[in-house]
Nucleic acid binder design. Sequence first.
DNA 1: ATCGCCAATCGTCGATTGACGATAGCTCGG
DNA 2: CCGAGCTATCGTCAATCGACGATTGGCGAT
Lengths: 117, 117
Amino acid sequence: MPRRAPTDTLCCPPATTTADTGLAPADSPEADEELASLAKALAHPVRVRIVRMLARKDARMCSHIVDELPLAQSTVSEHLRVLKAAGLVVTNERGPRIGYCIAPAALRRLKSLLQAL
Amino acid sequence: MPRRAPTDTLCCPPATTTADTGLAPADSPEADEELASLAKALAHPVRVRIVRMLARKDARMCSHIVDELPLAQSTVSEHLRVLKAAGLVVTNERGPRIGYCIAPAALRRLKSLLQAL
DNA sequence: ATCGCCAATCGTCGATTGACGATAGCTCGG
DNA sequence: CCGAGCTATCGTCAATCGACGATTGGCGAT
């Protein structure tokens, strides 16, 4: 087995305490843009899979994700960039190993916006 | 006021009685594809807005939708085609006036898939 | 039968996306 | 301080998307 990162020191933010459970308006031009933007981030099977992996607290590092997908490292990095740009994923940069994890608030916001449909 | 369609004879299917509330698996490669596909349909603000309009049981005809959007008729038609291809919208063709409406089952499926994240 | 409205389709254009390899930059460990 | 591992970025290429105008086809009403 190849020498890998410890997987230990990488961590997610300690659970969003701000209870933002759909308090923002969910029916407005801005909400349309917001929902479309979040939906666009999930509009690719690979990104859905990555989100699932991260939600399970699996495969935190980019290289871990690369290992599980039949894609080049640069491609995975690009998908992660899209997810991060949409706010669905946040990074915890700690040296050369970057921890990727779900942004629970964004995911909740997405669910909230969708439920409002 | 311009002479318009009656808005009366256009109708939606009489409420899906089949209680398909997330019974299909929501975590599999197929589910990834399905969620990505549905998300892609919502990955544009105009389509989100159209879905909202239809969910409110407003603006059933294509021309009604065109009236409320700063877009050409062909563009709106294309967005409707995308929504229909994704299964989020169904048509009730009755002569030259075509009734567009939400497919409640598809919307529920989308919410279900998303909640599983 | 013809006219008028409604909607789908076609063809085009520029912009964006998704994929890849190659390269560069970063930190930690030796 | 030098190498090794990890990731971001660049450049490229094909494919897809979004928007439009113009055209076509269809039904109902006049």
